[in-house]
Design a protein around this nucleic acid. Structure first.
Lengths: 352, 352
DNA sequence: TTGAAAGCGCTAACAT
DNA sequence: ATGTTAGCGCTTTCAA
């Protein structure tokens, strides 16, 4: 007797609900998991028993048998400062980038209605990467969504080698048999080139992203190619780091060497914003003296003055697609490695 | 025979390691969990067996018996647009706010070395809130860290009522027996008021945060109080929404009604940045004609031109402290409800 | 110091 | 349509 009372003191289990409803554990389980073939009347009494007991299924127990965590790892994979301060700074920087917010929004948008949950992970060091792999290997997550911040990142290959479900944002730096979602960066860069030339710009430069990032390379290559095809074989370039400050520095450098430039293509909005700041400090009007085009269409495009004309990347949709692909892999459908490439779009505002 | 071969085909278990090492499951478990009282020689052979098999502990199985998920819910609790589009927009906005990036960085900084993991959750609707509560009730997370974006949020009370470990960022709108970490907002506002007056500003206005957010209320109250004590009983006010756009609108309104103002205190950096933008458009020099002070010391403070003088909130430290408090609650130490209040600091840059 | 054995709460055959 | 039962992989008494 007293044993039963004690048992009740903790969280109710299926057993408790079954007892209250006067049925077996299995039946309760069926009702809860929406399996058909259950008498409506019994369903109802089970529901009442659930309410009466305040029952909540124990996820660990369920996971143990279903071998599903209903959880995915959302990993941001960086270049690897070892110190704790550096790591903290990395996390802060990543999240401060408006681009990443859109990624999260897109992923959560897909996951939430399916009651799957994202666990946030940062992977910078080799130990971190092992931890990520271990995390999904041990079933804490059913798969991984990875946003890599540089081309040499070994994590994608590790995941692929371990045969774990994973999808990347952006094509991996080296060929790896792993699914990914990406943007047609070259097309985006071409859009920017065309716009600049149509406006009449003739001395055009580019502020690139970090050249150890695939997207940075692709945008530059696409831009150069588009310019060359249109009779502009030479495009002065300054490398930036996708941050506002680096955009300022790059712009300042470009201006020093080419004071007469009249158009700039920056590989993201943050750098374009920095470029506008510097141009203004140097007495150049944007877009009248120098036209500026950014990339991403992030919140920085609106925060900048003038507001940025930019190449829109449908980040939320891309992120949602990542989640969908991963889900397919987890479910076992969608077998093979796949890639989905999105098309960019030029958003014309004030800066060009 | 063939049965054993098949069993090996899936992920190795403790049993497998034990067989290879020639010991019992219990011993392997002890080695893995670092329980003392294990013969060093056996420890070594177990380690080798672990390496040989590529064993990784199954988290669900472990959780089931330890009743720990080693996971915490990081929930961003909003005001509740029902549509999916609104929710997506909410997620994007939250993450686009550089403030939130710092929160995440601080939390991850504490969690990671302890191999605990944050699951990201958004709670806007009543169903979402129930889901959050259910999530930690069912042991999927050991507790919740909640960042509320408005004073009327019912989630804190729900968590407290359910007796679940939880810590808030910022004091709850209504008294709730729940631990929280906060900033001495009034002191911060006072710092801003003093700075403005020291500079010689005499016609000072404030762009407030949303007044249904506690921090918004506190910063305004603190600012008014500090001004009043120094002989300035009247402070014109425009309410903003903590976004750049709202800061612009508020500034424009203030300027229309008080064209002669010479100082502005904005309740966060994003709005201060917006204010600077509008002031410049209206031909006012910052800080010469109008001094501007922001709040937070987020990345927006550096992105703004001129760079913002602002009230620094040690967000990373605060977030780390949240995680620490939650950890204490989960461990059962630290029994009672507690609060930790951090002191702000004035960071002088160019805008005031 | 080590092993045997009893569950943790749940799902999924299988039997009825 | 419902109940019985056998685990999922792990930790943790309890004995030895």
């Amino acid at each position: 007797m007293s044993r039963e009372v004690q048992a009740q003191a903790v969280a109710p289990t299926l057993e408790d609900v079954a007892r209250v409803a006067g049925v077996s554990r299995a039946t309760v389980s069926r009702v809860i998991n929406g399996v058909r073939n259950v008498d409506p009347a019994i369903q109802e009494s089970v529901r009442q028993a659930v309410a009466a007991t305040g029952y909540t299924p124990n996820r660990a127990a369920r996971s143990l048998v279903t071998r599903r965590a209903e959880t995915i790892a959302l990993v941001v994979s960086g270049a690897g400062g070892e110190s704790e301060a550096e790591q903290r700074a990395f996390a802060a920087r990543v999240f401060a980038d408006p681009f990443f917010g859109r990624v999260v929004a897109g992923i959560v948008g897909y996951l939430r209605p399916r009651s799957m949950h994202p666990v946030l992970m940062f992977a910078e060091t080799s130990a971190d990467r092992d931890q990520v792999v271990a995390y999904v290997r041990q079933g804490s997550a059913d798969g991984a969504l990875v946003v890599s911040t540089h081309a040499g990142d070994p994590l994608p290959a590790m995941l692929a080698a371990a045969g774990l479900p994973a999808v990347l944002f952006a094509r991996p730096g080296r060929p790896v048999p792993i699914s990914y979602v990406d943007l047609a960066h070259q097309d985006g860069a071409r859009l920017a080139a065309e716009r600049l030339l149509e406006r009449g710009c003739r001395r055009v430069a580019s502020i690139t992203g970090p050249l150890d990032v695939v997207a940075g390379q692709d945008r530059l290559a696409g831009f150069r190619d588009a310019m060359a095809r249109r009779g502009h074989p030479y495009v002065p370039v300054a490398e930036g780091g996708f941050t506002l400050e680096s955009g300022e520095a790059a712009m300042a450098g470009l201006l020093a060497e080419h004071p007469d430039l009249d158009g700039v293509f920056a590989a993201n909005d943050l750098m374009a914003q920095g470029a506008c700041l510097v141009l203004r400090e140097h007495g150049r009007r944007v877009p009248d003296d120098v036209a500026v085009i950014g990339f991403d269409d992030s919140s920085a495009a609106l925060a900048s003055r003038p507001q940025l004309t930019t190449v829109r990347q449908p980040v939320e949709d891309m992120a949602g697609e990542m989640a969908r692909l991963l889900h397919e892999h987890i479910e076992g459908r969608g077998g093979d490695v796949r890639s989905v490439i999105f098309e960019p779009e030029l958003v014309v505002r004030e800066s060009a």
